[in-house]
Simulated scan of single mutants.
Amino acid sequence: MSDELLSGGDLEDALARLSRWGIPGRMEGMKDLLERLRSAKQRRAQRHDLSTAFDQLKEKLEEVKRLEREGLERRRSTPAPNEQMRQAMERLAQERLGQLDALPEDFGRAVRALKDYEFVEPKAAEKYQELLKELQQQVLGSYFKNMRDSLKNLSPEQLERTRQMIRDLNRALKERMEGGEPDFEAFQRQYPELAGSAKDWDDLLRQLAQGMAAMRSLWQSMSPDMRSQLEELLGTAFADPGLQAAMNELADTLSQLMPMESYEHGMSGDEPVSLAEALGLMDEMNQISDMEDVVRSARASGDLDPLDPDQVERLAGPGARQSLEQLQKMIELLEEAGLIRKDGERYELTPRGIRKIGQRSLEEIFATLKRDAFGSHRSRSRG
């Protein structure tokens, strides 16, 4: 900081420049913190392959088709009590096998087409329902992150509870938009799986908005072909009109109450990810992007308080946390050392700080004289 003041800047400018650039070899600045965040996001982008997000689900679809084909062939080859029943089974098998052969190559459209297919093999029908249930779990789990555990093995009763929960949430948020004060604690007691970890309505809204933003980012980061498949999958998994309407209403309400930025993330790695992992990855990268925005804004405002050190460490590593904490404590340490104090809205040097700067100035002058003494010529004067 002394260097900054020696160059003629005032204290506020010196503090701002110190925060922005740090002290080489001794303290990182906002520029370094921003680079750490960028690197954390880039590592994720260069590691994962978004095009594999449907691969696990595709394998499950292939299993459904295989089980149905095997069931049809088994029934086809089983001796019938009479010729009429044999011919009927043959016609049924040919019809169903033809329908399976005619399924679209596009994964999403194939899943949707099977929605109206009449399965002959019970195991195949069961596996198809499991596929749809897994889709529901992964998508709902991205929207309602706190509910991921409770959404496992999603039963019809749990799905109905989720539907009712979203309706109640929509009513509470609508009341809040109209100036009312819905009872958060009552909602939290009724739906602890969703609101249990939230401090208040704002905290819950922030969590929900992050989930919605992750889905939007996934959509934006996908190729047009994958977007089409995802659209088909979501339409099939959430064919329930009541649930779909409630989710749409919640999305509209959140966009008004808690608008949250979603980002497009280019992925260039080769490590496979499931749909659930892809949504989690989008959420992490969105959070890092939000942190980058805070740091960029702090270049002007100096306010890094919105950044949570625990979150920074979780997403960008311990080095980023240390960098953040040093920046957050810089002013505090200077005040504790008695070098600066706040005068209204601005900081000023204390008498002790002025003495330190004076000492630093003498050190600079002495260092200059010393360099000259060992330079190409000697000074004849002394003083």
Rank of each mutant, 00 (worst) to 15 (best):
L92H: 12
A93R: 07
A93S: 11
A93P: 04
Q94V: 04
Q94L: 07
R96I: 09
R96F: 07
R96N: 12
R96V: 10
L97F: 01
L97E: 01
G98P: 03
G98Y: 06
Q99V: 02
D101M: 02
A102V: 03
A102W: 03
L103C: 00
P104M: 06
P104T: 03
P104N: 05
P104V: 00
E105Y: 10
D106R: 13
D106E: 15
F107L: 12
F107V: 12
R109E: 15
R109P: 07
R109K: 14
A110I: 01
A110Q: 00
V111W: 03
V111L: 06
R112Q: 02
R112H: 02
R112W: 05
A113C: 04
A113I: 02
A113K: 07
L114S: 03
L114Q: 07
K115S: 14
D116K: 09
D116L: 09
D116V: 07
Y117Q: 00
Y117R: 01
Y117D: 05
E118Y: 08
E118D: 13
F119T: 13
F119Q: 11
F119G: 11
V120F: 15
V120C: 14
V120N: 14
E121R: 05
E121W: 06
E121V: 07
K123T: 15
K123I: 12
K123G: 13
A124D: 13
A124T: 09
A124M: 13
A124F: 10
E126C: 09
Y128K: 02
Q129S: 10
E130P: 09
E130L: 14
L131H: 08
L132D: 00
L132Q: 00
K133G: 11
K133Y: 00
E134F: 12
L135Q: 08
L135E: 08
Q136L: 10
Q136D: 03
Q137M: 13
Q137Y: 00
Q137W: 06
Q137K: 09
V139T: 10
V139R: 11
L140W: 01
L140F: 07
G141Q: 00
S142P: 05
S142C: 14
S142A: 15
Y143V: 01
Y143F: 11
